[in-house]
């Protein structure tokens, strides 16, 4: 591969800084990235003193070639999907910065921190009220969902 596209160049830089200086509680599965630069698996820990203390979660980031102008597709994957009012049991996350509030000035790191802080501020572990119907009817890609952001407190 001779020259990288701007999106690959930026992903490469983000990857390097995530490996070199990961934010607390965040680790990247470098093996998954080596195979495919457009899909990253990232592990995040539930912070101490929160409802998710001691739990480990895994996020899947999918980037297309318009990144960072187009937002990444971010879902929880694996066996442990956090029980949270904004996280559906299929791993989809209702977070405005992942769709309409996305900005190219955001990054993988800032998305991870937003998700970690969304988990930390939760006061009661429960699924979103429309979980059953949503999981049955939704598109596989959470970015196709027209989210209704009704609650900024958690």
């Amino acid at each position: 591969m001779s020259s990288k596209s701007p999106s690959e160049r930026r992903l490469h830089k983000e990857l390097m800084s995530l490996i070199k200086e990961p934010p607390p509680g965040v680790t990247i599965d470098t093996e998954s990235v080596q195979q495919n630069l457009s899909e990253w698996k990232i592990n995040i820990k539930g912070f101490e003193g929160t409802l998710y203390e001691g739990e480990d979660f895994q996020l899947l980031f999918k980037f297309n070639n318009k990144y960072p102008f187009d937002s990444p597709e971010v879902t929880f994957i694996g066996t442990n999907i956090p029980v949270h009012p904004h996280v559906y049991s299929n791993g989809h996350i209702c977070l405005s910065i992942l769709t309409e509030d996305w900005s190219p000035a955001l990054s993988v790191q800032s998305v991870c921190l937003s998700i970690a802080s969304m988990l930390s501020s939760c006061r009661e572990k429960k699924r979103p009220p429309d979980n059953t119907i949503y999981v049955k009817t939704c598109n596989k890609n959470p970015k196709k969902t027209k989210w209704w952001y009704h609650d900024d407190s958690v």
Binding site: P6, R9, R10, K13, E14, P68, P104, A105
Partner: peptide, 10 residues
């Protein structure tokens, strides 16, 4: 990092 573009990171 202080000099780089916050969009393309270059």
């Amino acid at each position: 990092e202080e000099l780089r573009c916050n969009i393309c990171f270059a």
